[in-house]
């Protein structure tokens, strides 16, 4: 029974979180902490911290984390599947419609209007990621002391390398992580 409950809870989270990770957090909290008491609020805060530290969408990380805690590995698998099932159904349908009608004038026009908007959305998300990397949790602050200069240098070097040699971005990310760890251990 608990497996079914897990599935249904995360199905709802997957169904109603539109617009990326941050939008999903209150939904997850509502299901996991308020409705089912699967996690305490402190555990939930830990979960968000760990989700930020590990790869993958927050909703999927939460599903795995809660599932494994409540019902072991089967729980993790079921909760994760519940979380992606709405996407699979809705997006597949959308994909079918899109690839079938993408040559229609109205659809083509709509998509050409969306492309610059998407670039703007990525730019806006980038500013928060940048602020998080350079100033930490609190985001932008005018106080020069709150700047993490190590991060700033890593950022600048990484951007220079990306612009100049166009390497695989994954290598740049790994190298930045190694540099961060090494500088910390040396200082």
């Amino acid at each position: 029974m608990i497996i079914l409950k897990l599935f249904w809870s995360f199905f709802q989270i997957g169904m109603f979180s539109i617009g990326g990770g941050m939008a999903a957090i209150p939904l997850i909290q509502n299901q996991v902490v308020d409705l089912h008491n699967w996690l305490t609020l402190a555990e939930f805060t830990d979960l968000i911290t760990i989700a930020e530290m590990t790869p993958g969408p927050i909703a999927i990380n939460s599903a795995t984390f809660v599932g494994i805690k409540i019902a072991g590995v089967p729980g993790a698998v079921v909760a994760t599947l519940g979380c992606v099932l709405p996407s699979c159904l809705i997006v597949s349908l959308l994909a079918w419609v899109y690839f079938k009608y993408k040559e229609m004038t109205a659809i083509k026009g709509a998509l050409s209007g969306l492309r610059p908007a998407v670039v703007a959305l990525i730019a806006s998300a980038e500013i928060s990621i940048f602020a998080m990397a350079i100033w930490g949790e609190g985001g932008f602050s005018a106080n020069p002391e709150s700047i993490n200069y190590i991060s700033l240098v890593i950022f600048a070097v990484a951007l220079f390398i990306l612009q100049k040699w166009k390497p695989n971005p994954v290598f740049v990310m790994i190298a930045s992580g190694v540099a961060g760890g090494a500088i910390y251990l040396l200082i």
Binding site: I129, N148, I150, S151, A158, M173, S176, G180, Y184
Partner: peptide, 20 residues
């Protein structure tokens, strides 16, 4: 772990600026 992740965050920020 935190230091590595902090470094990676800066790298991720650079990757996205590059694409933008």
């Amino acid at each position: 772990v935190n230091a590595v992740l902090k470094g990676m965050q800066a790298g991720v920020a650079a990757v996205i600026v590059d694409v933008v």
